[in-house]
């Protein structure tokens, strides 16, 4: 079992440096620091528990094997996310039995772009649901998005990467990230509307 370091809190860059020098503890701390978020990411992309667990494990094994190739002028977490996204998409493609799952698919349709239902939610609409129920509502909503939108949304609004980091992690242009994020957010708003709206406004 690899235990986190108990001394002063080191940042990722220092831990990466130590891990490259041969510190097992430093790499273990990097894993402990990021495993929950990476698992959330693999769960949301694959939408399958077994695939998400495999993708999580593969992500950290690959990160370990490729650590010497990691250029320390970028963020370790962004690099890790990029590996996790690739691993998750591979699982998703395999599960679907074809290669049609692609982040390149622009999906430039009007569907989900023009809002159909507009309703006021009031303050803190999420508080009307118990924690577990809220999680299920949110998970279902994210999982219903097409993969190209889902992935951008997870990185930008759940993992809170910047637009540029998201573009880098997904190998997309900044404008593609922005356009997909807008569509993802509008679609999610629409899906949550039925749970959260207080009363309908006339259009």
């Amino acid at each position: 079992m690899i235990e986190p370091q108990s001394a002063r809190i080191l940042d990722d860059a220092e831990l990466v440096h130590q891990a490259k020098e041969g510190s097992v503890e430093a790499f273990g701390e990097l894993v402990n620091r990021h495993d929950r978020k990476i698992f959330r990411l693999t769960q949301h992309i694959t939408r399958n528990r077994e695939d998400a667990e495999d993708a999580l494990q593969e992500t950290f094994l690959k990160a370990y094997s490729r650590l010497s190739q990691f250029a320390e002028n970028s963020q370790f977490y962004t690099w890790l996310v990029r590996i996790a996204v690739n691993e998750s998409l591979m699982k998703l493609r395999k599960r679907k039995g074809d290669a049609s799952v692609s982040l390149d698919d622009p999906m430039e349709t009007e569907e989900g772009f023009v809002p159909r239902e507009i309703g006021d939610w009031g303050n803190n609409p999420e508080q009307q649901y118990a924690q577990q129920e809220l999680h299920e509502i949110l998970d279902r909503a994210v999982h219903s998005l097409p993969a190209p939108f889902r992935t951008v949304f997870i990185l930008r609004d759940m993992e809170q990467l910047s637009t540029e980091e998201t573009a880098e992690a997904l190998n997309l242009s900044v404008s593609a990230v922005k356009s997909r994020l807008l569509r993802a957010r509008l679609q999610l708003r629409e899906k949550l509307n039925r749970h959260f709206q207080r009363g309908k406004l006339s259009c």
Partner: peptide, 30 residues
Amino acid sequence: DTTRKTIQIFRGTEPYPLPEGLHDKLQEAL
């Protein structure tokens, strides 16, 4: 306003800790 709240709600969610069995499996593989 509702799009802003959508984002806030998702940003406010914390990832769950790894299930015990999965944590051990990952550590063992590493």
